[in-house]
Design a protein around this nucleic acid. Structure first.
Lengths: 246, 246
DNA sequence: CTCGAAGGTTGACAATAGTCAATCCTGAAC
DNA sequence: GTTCAGGATTGACTATTGTCAACCTTCGAG
């Protein structure tokens, strides 16, 4: 594969501790592929033949059932996705669709599975990665079950502010309809909820979020470390939405 | 620890492939503890010092937030729980509460973390276990986001029948209020939903479930392999509700 | 056998969330 | 600039789900 992406990939928690020779071997078995926007690169139910690493662009992971669908996560560079399916040699549980022009490094799942038997540091890294991903989804499930949509929106807005460095204003990193789907609600409901939240410490102007009364918003969002994080090295494993920038 | 529980534990996917000496070492560092019914043995947020293995009784894993709580899983013998927290050396994300008198084997998390660096087969087993757990939670999250409560109940009833061997009648393995919480709804709503489902192929008599028209129920539940399984060796990792028996 | 506690059920009502349709941006192509 | 397409918003309405209170079972303790 093209070596120019190697350094970024090498720095991922998943790969940084393994022997250089082993990393090089994995990379030499891999290849890069570019996809146009809006393309379904993976369909849920397909066999998991490759670990995917986003090196450019962004990918939406969606769950589908009975003609409905919901966004489970958005993956931004540089991070991996669908590691678990590769390891289990099982069908993908989610469909992956590019949001923009995207470059992906594809690592054959079989090489991956062989490698963690040979390289202990890699095995440990995989263990840590999976444990993080697991915890991340559990947090998500808790948020979905314990909070109503208004509380989820408030939590999201507050958390994005914190992720962006505690700034009082930032721009939403994804389209609202995608955010709505991620939060488990309809775009219409999100739109209305954002409006009503203006009495609770946030001002919304298009994609711009301005936190006018952090304490008031927090009283509603009730941020909780065990749901909203922070969790170490979870951000590079494609189990949430990308962070905002102020 | 008491050796009489060793054989059952040894047969778990997590432990069956490791070297006998290493298994013995882990067990010798562990100890058994018995808990009365209704006891909170773990509180969410506590540091994860021990991998827990249920050898007798049953344990409910619940998520809590803002005074609310929901059941995430029920763990029955013989299976492990909170592996991920132990590995990450991070706080538990869920509270664990005994449903009945329960015996637990406690394996020190530090020994666990040391062991998978020494025993490759154990490391591989941990990887597989975590990947399975991860996929299990993703399935759950999909069910919660894509289905309404009526569909979740129908899916649950149908799946239990399949897990019990495709039988037309079985007994619910848990109390209805617990089931309601697991399915993300109130007991009242579950009660009403069960009643209305009688026009769709299931008869409910107390804790007894009789499937009168499987096709009709399936048309509503729309069972999906990517949500409802089956998934290999997921049942022993405490990421769902126990299976029913006819 | 009686009693009492706890789970389960039911009814009435309120809150929450989804649907459908119309309209309003907004930004990219021409 | 103009046009057009797609996202976002709004209104009106419906469906779903939760809340509160009352009541009914069931089952075990005494």
């Amino acid at each position: 594969m093209r070596p120019d992406t190697d350094p970024q990939i090498r720095h991922l928690h998943l790969f940084r501790d393994m022997a250089q020779a082993n990393f090089a071997e994995l990379m030499s078995a891999s290849y890069v592929q570019a996809f146009p926007p809006g393309l379904e690169m993976i369909r849920q139910g397909d066999p998991a033949d490759f670990l995917h690493i986003v090196v450019q662009g962004s990918v939406e992971l969606v769950g589908q059932w009975a003609g409905r669908e919901c966004t489970m996560a958005v993956v931004r560079p540089v991070s991996t996705f669908i590691l678990a399916a590769c390891i289990r040699d099982a069908p993908y549980l989610m469909t992956a669709r590019t949001l923009e022009r995207t470059r992906i490094v594809l690592v054959p799942a079989s090489d991956l599975r062989a490698m963690f038997r040979r390289d202990t540091e890699f095995a440990v890294a995989v263990i840590n990665e999976l444990a993080s991903c697991y915890r991340s989804v559990v947090r998500n499930a808790k948020s979905m079950k314990l909070r109503n949509s208004r509380e989820r929106v408030a939590s999201y807005l507050l958390r994005q502010s914190i992720l962006a460095g505690g700034v009082p204003a930032y721009t939403l990193p994804v389209e609202k309809r995608l955010l709505a789907s991620y939060l488990g609600m309809t775009p219409e409901n999100l739109s209305r909820t954002l409006r009503t939240l203006e009495t609770d410490g946030v001002k919304i102007d298009g994609a711009r979020v301005i936190i006018t009364d952090r304490a008031r918003l927090a009283a509603l969002a009730k941020p909780d470390k065990l749901i909203d994080g922070p969790d170490t090295h979870a951000e590079e494993s494609g189990s949430g939405l990308p962070a905002a920038r102020s």
